[in-house]
Write a protein that binds this DNA or RNA. Structure first.
Lengths: 111, 111
DNA sequence: TTCAGTACTGACATTTTTGTTAGTGGAGGT
DNA sequence: ACCTCCACTAACAAAAATGTCAGTACTGAA
């Protein structure tokens, strides 16, 4: 996440959705808006810190929208923007590919 | 690259093609087989070490095949396997998405 | 009155990834 | 004789990503 110029579109796409958590978060949000705590529970293993960092980055790239409801148990809802939806639509085939080959991938990636 | 279980297909796919270089290498190889030195020149900025590390990982996951020609300037050719081609076919839409939004991505990803 | 839940933030530590530099050994060019 | 290319490898260093833990201010429930 430190370049300004990309050598190809894949490069740019990965800059936006690469890393350990972003795709997972996008995936959850593609099912509908979620508040912070819900999102945390639906992405198993993520820490609050990581979740916020990733959400912040995705806000600045415009993939995710954040809406605050001024209530007294505070409520903040995250959702995909149109831009986010456009990304998810091309990520779905990749996700299917991963599912189809998951056994093989589990067996061959690292120890 | 240190898990055995994935929460979804995207997760698995990213385990296989995530990181700074793999997608770029896959992209180059999708145009046809290349030898080590050619690959190095066509992926600008990659170091020899990184190139080999990534190639090795992609060999063990079965995306890339390595063929050695026992000649006297040694010649080693890398190519995509069928598995690799199946991955590239779902990565192409992602690459197109990245191209279409590249300006926006360049403008919004980090300093 | 203590505890859980709300959505975070900051300091710090560790892990993972990436990069740098130097070196292998043989052959061909100048 | 010297340099380059070939495809690597090893030791080490730096940078980036991720994780851990504590704490914020408020409210309602036990």
């Amino acid at each position: 996440m430190k370049r300004k110029t990309f050598t190809c579109g894949l490069d740019a796409a990965i800059a936006v959705m690469g890393g350990k958590w972003k795709a997972l978060i996008l995936w959850e949000l593609s099912q509908g808006p979620l508040r912070f705590g819900e999102l945390k529970r639906s992405v198993p293993g993520i820490s609050e810190r990581m979740l916020i960092l990733q959400l912040r980055e995705m806000q600045t790239t415009g993939l995710v929208a954040r809406e605050v409801y001024h209530q007294v148990p505070p409520k903040v809802e995250y959702s995909l923007t149109d831009f986010g939806h456009s990304l998810i639509s091309v990520l779905i085939p990749l996700g299917k590919w991963g599912e189809e080959h998951m056994e093989h991938i589990e067996a061959t990636t690292s120890a």
